[in-house]
Amino acid sequence: EPNEGTFILNSEISKKGKIKPVHLVDVPGHSRLRPKLDEFLPQAAGIVFVVDALEFIPNLRAISEYLYDILTKGSVVKKKVPVVICCNKTDKVTAHTKEFIRKQLEKEM
């Protein structure tokens, strides 16, 4: 099941002015649960696409296909929903760099 929560991000606390809470939805990545994503995309102000920077190469094709799928979704294209690609697990020494990940994703797509 997706995790959902409304809270104030740490970065907002130090900001001056009005503090805006954010509603964050963590959608399961398993392919059988992908349709869940369609329930949330129409109301999304932004998408964070999380990539495992460690186990990147063996999953390159699957990651690219999923990302392509998101970038071409009607609701995303129509509303120009911003997508950020987040390279996770970069604390590990064998993790790939964000530049490498970007190049490989561009090449694959």
Binding site: I13, G46, V51
Partner: peptide
């Protein structure tokens, strides 16, 4: 809307990220 959707393949670490963002860590 103030909804941000976290997505990615299974095992990419979305759920850990979700709790880190929620708990401000």
């Amino acid at each position: 809307s103030n909804t941000i959707v976290l997505t990615g393949l299974s095992g990419s670490g979305k759920t850990v990220l979700f709790y880190q963002l929620r708990d401000g860590s």
